[in-house]
Simulated scan of single mutants.
Amino acid sequence: VTTGTASSVDLCYNGHSALPGPLCHGVIAKDGTVYLVGNGRTNHAGLGDADVLRAVTTEAKTLPADNEANTDGNRHFYGFECVNLGDGKDPWPAAQLDAIERAAAALCRAHGWSERSV
């Protein structure tokens, strides 16, 4: 939807006319900087299936089919946006990938989760 770090952080913090911000908890830039833009509920996950949520929260090895949209995923999941054009050509620098892994690891440590929760 946008390009560059500043405009990505701004969009994720403020949202847009069809979806108010914040749109995620953090934006991870190409240089590895993590911009925290939201706390609590953010508009990143939308509706999901309660059975899938139960499987995720118990860190099940397999997930059931997502066949209902009856649970607000925004209340239950962290969301991060990573600056990238998404065109298959824009690179993922090592610093950005490291920051993605570290952010996920920090959340897992804070909550006592395994890698299955990422």
Rank of each mutant, 00 (worst) to 15 (best):
A69S: 13
F80G: 00
G48H: 03
D90L: 07
D87S: 11
G4K: 10
W113Y: 15
C108F: 09
V9T: 00
R109A: 15
H16W: 11
A45G: 06
D51H: 02
E59R: 00
D49F: 03
Y13W: 10
D90V: 00
N84Y: 09
A103F: 09
D98C: 02
A55C: 03
G15K: 03
K89H: 15
F77D: 09
A94P: 06
E81K: 10
L19C: 10
S117Q: 05
W92H: 08
P20M: 00
G40C: 08
D87F: 09
L97Q: 07
G4Q: 12
T2Q: 01
H76M: 11
R109E: 15
E101R: 11
G4S: 14
L11M: 10
A110S: 15
T3L: 06
A55L: 02
F77K: 07
G40E: 12
C82P: 05
R75Y: 13
D66K: 07
R102C: 08
V118L: 08
N84P: 01
G38A: 05
P22L: 06
R109G: 12
I100M: 15
G88D: 07
L53V: 02
T33I: 04
V27A: 04
G73C: 13
K30A: 14
H76N: 15
E68W: 05
K61N: 08
H76D: 14
R116G: 10
L19N: 05
G40S: 11
H16A: 07
G79S: 15
L23V: 04
A60E: 04
T3W: 13
I100G: 02
A6F: 09
A69M: 12
R102L: 10
D98W: 06
V52A: 03
L97F: 08
D49K: 03
D51K: 02
C12K: 01
R75T: 13
K89S: 14
P91Q: 15
A55N: 03
N74V: 03
T42M: 04
E81V: 09
G15W: 00
G73K: 02
G79P: 06
G32N: 13
T3F: 14
N70V: 05
G73V: 10
E81L: 10
R41D: 11
G15F: 00
S7W: 07
E81W: 10
H44A: 13
L53H: 02
G40F: 08
A94E: 14
D87A: 15
A55E: 04
R54Q: 14
L107R: 13
G32P: 10
V27M: 05
C108G: 14
A29V: 00
N14F: 06
R102G: 02
L23E: 02
N43S: 11
V56W: 03
N70G: 11
V9R: 03
L36E: 15
E115A: 13
Y35L: 04
A60Y: 02
D90T: 05
Q96G: 04
L47D: 13
T42W: 00
R116E: 11
C82Y: 13
S114W: 09
S114V: 00
I28K: 03
P91E: 15
Y13L: 08
P20E: 03
S8V: 01
A45I: 15
C108A: 14
I100P: 06
Y13F: 08
D90Y: 07
N14R: 00
T42K: 07
G48Y: 05
G21M: 01
C12M: 07
E101C: 14
A50D: 07
W113I: 05
